[in-house]
Amino acid sequence: MAVADQARTQASVSRKPALAWEGVTYRLVSVLLMIAVWQAISLLVSPKYVPGPMSTVMAVAKHAASGALWGHFLATIVRMVSSFALAMIVGVAAGILMGLFRRGEQMLDLWVMVGLTIPGLCYVIVSFLWLGLNDRAAILAISWTTFPSIAINIWQGVKAIDQRLVDMARVFRASRWRRTVRVVLPQVLPYLMAATRFGLGVVWKVTVLVELLGRSDGIGYMLNYSFQMFNMADVFAWTLSFTVFMVIIELGILKPLERKLFRWRPEISG
């Protein structure tokens, strides 16, 4: 048995890094390929309409040097973080109510569905009309658009809780707190993770829209500004820089977190 055990341990030890390394290689190849395609299209169409990777990076560097990049980034991130936090609070609360109580489900599910259906643009316009062209209105509109998709994920997560495991914990006299933290939370965690991903995606898209329509700073505003000036390189530059930022959050925070939290799972991340 000891020998078999050792073999098992070794197998898993040698497999994991190989997989990770493989992942990096293929990712790198795919990024390089994408850049090549981009360059090719730029050359084929015309660098005026499709600025190539080089001129886009130059434009990013220019804004970074002038300091504009950081100011607008900050404005956008502050809006995103506060709206996301708000949407998370409301969405998680609604999701739990819907998941735990049938009444909650009957009261809320229609509105969550409606909330998902109405385009973010409507919330943005209404919010600006009611509250004026300020950040309060911006944050309200963004979080309002975002909370339904968070609520839906949490709702599913709460419904998927395996009550039999909770019962097991109760038989062994685990306190309510312990059952919640050690048995329920780990089961909901994957859904919380999905809600975060979904939420961040929506928040980002609506933030840009809000900034375009009613703010005078932030990435969305600068995108619109560059568009008005017909400065394609800048349009690409703002898009690229923020995309890179989001990818860093995904690969630097969400993915590792997920790997750490769900390491026990049989081969989900590869």
Binding site: L165, M168, R182, F262, W264
Partner: peptide, 10 residues
């Protein structure tokens, strides 16, 4: 229990 009811993440 009739099923193992082990916490799968532990």
């Amino acid at each position: 229990f009739q099923e193992p009811r082990l916490l799968p993440w532990l």
